[in-house]
């Protein structure tokens, strides 16, 4: 499977390697640019009150016209500091508009290594998709998982199920379960299973920090822990119950 994804991606380095000339120009010219740029605004700043048009060579008039990349929205100079996947999208435009900013020189070996790593990752992912459900659980054990957070940000979270109770209106208790999604358990299924097992209400809800949770009416923490362990085969050492503000293993 790795070999399927590889050719498409490897395309990029070979394509970039075809144009070494702009690359070397880029690396040569940059220090000079740096010096010029440093000198420019620095002196401009000193004489700013006088009009700012007293630059060393050509008089600069403000406002400068600023160009932004149509793909990532950043100034083109900073396109290459995007993630690799975003920068790949910027590249076609950047090659047209600012060929000197496409750093052919910069770490082709590094790029290939990254691609290789990605291909391996991809392979692992597809393999586990083909395998049975407990294999999926096994792969989720292998490391922290990426969880989407508010504002499109992602955060790595260790795969574990945390069960805590909370109070609703008056003395009503609810049991809240966080982390089921990390084990590829469908939350609506889990809620349904709870309804059946406990004969109580259970819903899928979003927590304040935008995680998907299952809310069960009543205090069912330990019962639910048994349910996820037995029905969904989640390893018992990854199930935690929060009691009197401390997080403990559900099955010590």
């Amino acid at each position: 499977m790795a070999t399927v994804t590889a050719p498409a991606d490897v395309d990029t380095p070979s394509g970039t390697a075809a144009a070494p000339a702009p690359g070397s120009a880029w690396s040569d010219s940059e220090p000079a640019d740096a010096a010029a740029a440093d000198a420019g605004p620095a002196s401009g700043g000193g004489t700013g009150k006088g009009g700012g048009a007293s630059g060393p060579a050509a008089p600069v008039t403000y406002p400068l016209v600023v160009e932004y990349c149509p793909m990532c929205g950043l100034p083109p100079e900073y396109c290459r500091f995007n993630s690799k996947s975003v920068f790949a999208k910027c590249k076609p435009w950047l090659k047209e508009a600012h060929p000197q900013l496409v750093p052919e020189m910069f770490g082709e070996g590094e790029l290939e290594a990254k691609l290789a790593a990605m291909a391996v990752d991809g392979g692992a992912a597809t393999a586990s998709a083909n395998a049975a459900a407990d294999a999926a659980v096994a792969s989720s054990l292998s490391g922290p998982k990426l969880v989407k957070r508010a504002g499109g940000r992602s955060k790595r979270v260790d795969p574990e199920i945390v069960i805590h109770t909370d109070q609703r209106k008056g003395r009503k208790q609810v049991t809240i379960v966080v982390g089921l999604d990390l084990f590829d358990i469908k939350l609506s299924d889990a809620a349904k299973a709870c309804k059946k097992a406990f004969a109580s209400g259970a819903t899928v809800a979003k927590s304040a920090d935008n995680r998907d949770t299952v809310e069960i009416q009543g205090t069912r923490a330990h019962e639910f822990a048994e349910l996820v362990r037995d029905k969904y085969k989640v390893p018992s050492e990854l199930i935690f119950v929060v009691e009197s503000k401390s997080k403990k293993r559900a099955f010590p």
Binding site: G45, G52, Y62, Y78, F81
Partner: peptide
């Protein structure tokens, strides 16, 4: 930043190392 880009004379200029760019962003 969008205003400073048009009028870079507004602020003193501090130039960081290449390696810092990604972190600052």
């Amino acid at each position: 930043l969008r205003l400073l880009a048009k009028y870079p004379i507004l602020l003193p200029r501090m130039c960081v190392d290449d390696g810092a760019i990604r972190h600052v962003m």
